[in-house]
Simulated assay, not measured.
Amino acid sequence: MDEIELSNALEDLCEVLESFFGKGVRDVSGLKQAICRLKIRTGNPKQKEYPLSVNIARLSFDIPTTHKHTLPIGVVDSILTLSIKMGFREPIASFYCINEMNIDFELSANDKEGRPIKSAWHLDYHDVKGDEHFSHPQFHFQFGGKKLRESLRVDCEHFNTGELLLMESPRLMHPPMDPILAIDFIFSNFLGEASWKALRQKRSFIKIHKISKDAFWRPYFEGISNYLSNPTSSKQALGLQPSL
C-alpha cells in the first residue's frame, strides 16, 4: 500500500470503529490523528519519496466482564489500549519493507477491592544480528515488557508480583500486524464473538482486511511454506522462526 491507499484504508477502519462506539470501542482519536498526518504527507510532494511510517497512539476499548478464568477473581472496569508504531524502508507499507514494528496491548482494571491491576502484551519486529542467547523470531509476541514495567513504576512504586513470575521468555512467533489486523485481533480475543462477527460482516472491513492480509500475511506464510517444501531454499524462514 502506498500512502494514499493506506490513508484510505485507515479512514475506512475509523468509520467501522465509530460504528462500535458504546459497544466495545471507547476512543479512536489516535487513529484520526494518524490519518491527518498521512493526509499532510500526501499533500507534500517533497515527502513522497521518504520512507513511510505510521504512529497510532492509545486507541481504547472497554473489555466486557464475561471473560472466563480471569485472575484475580472479580475484575471490573477493564480497559484495553492499543498503540501501533510501524516504519518502512520505502514509501509503501508492505511486509518486505518493514524496518520497525511495535504493537502494544495494555490492559488496566480494578480488582474487587478497587485496587488497580495491569497486564500487557506486545508484538515486535526485531531483525536479529549475530548470536542471540534465546530463540528470537523476527516477529514475536511477548508478555509484559517495557510498557508494563513503565506503568507499574508510575502507579505502583512498591509493586509486588506475589506468586507471579515475569520474565522475557518466551518470545512467541506470530505474523506481523498492521492497524487493520491488530483491530481484528482485539475484537476476536477481547470483545466477544458477537462483536467479532459483526466486524467481519462490515463490507468496508472485509475489503481492507483482505488488503492487509495480502500485504503482510501472504509473504510471511509463504516464507514458512517455502522452507517446509524445500529447507535449503529459504533463509528468510529461519529469521521468521529460528526453531525450524
Rank of each mutant, 00 (worst) to 15 (best):
L152Y: 04
N55F: 08
A57I: 15
G145M: 09
F21M: 07
K213W: 02
I180W: 00
F143Q: 06
M86T: 02
D178C: 12
A237G: 06
I92S: 00
K23R: 13
V16M: 01
P170I: 15
D124I: 05
E15T: 15
F20A: 05
I56F: 02
I103V: 15
I208P: 00
R58Y: 08
L71F: 14
A215Q: 01
P137M: 10
F139Y: 06
F141D: 01
G22N: 04
R89D: 00
F216A: 01
S108W: 03
D214Y: 07
N110C: 15
E15I: 14
P45K: 12
N226V: 12
P176Y: 01
A109W: 02
P137A: 11
Q47S: 13
Q236R: 13
E193L: 13
H133V: 15
R171A: 10
S60Y: 01
D178P: 07
V128D: 06
K118W: 05
C156R: 14
L148Y: 02
S233V: 15
K129W: 07
H126T: 14
S29D: 04
E15N: 15
K112E: 06
I73R: 05
K68A: 13
A198L: 09
F21V: 13
K202M: 07
H174G: 04
A93C: 10
G162V: 15
F190C: 06
Q47Y: 04
P231K: 08
H126Y: 13
D124C: 07
S229T: 14
E11F: 08
D111F: 08
S212Q: 01
S229E: 10
Y220T: 05
E90V: 13
G192N: 07
H67V: 12
L238Q: 07
Y96E: 11
F141V: 13
E106D: 10
E113F: 15
H136F: 08
F139A: 03
E113T: 15
F88W: 04
K85S: 06
D184Q: 11
L71D: 08
Q241N: 13
N160Q: 09
L152T: 10
H209C: 10
P176S: 09
S243Q: 12
S7G: 09
A57R: 05
K46W: 06
L123V: 09
N189D: 08
M1W: 02
V28M: 04
G192F: 03
P91L: 03
Q236Y: 12
D184K: 06
F105S: 03
K129T: 15
I98P: 02
G87K: 01
L166N: 05
K68Q: 09
P51E: 04
Q241Y: 12
G130S: 10
E106F: 05
K213N: 06
G74M: 08
L148Q: 03
L244G: 07
N99T: 12
Y220C: 05
E18W: 04
D155M: 12
S119Q: 08
S94W: 00
I84Y: 00
T232P: 03
K85I: 08
S135N: 11
L181K: 03
L80N: 01
L80S: 02
C97P: 05
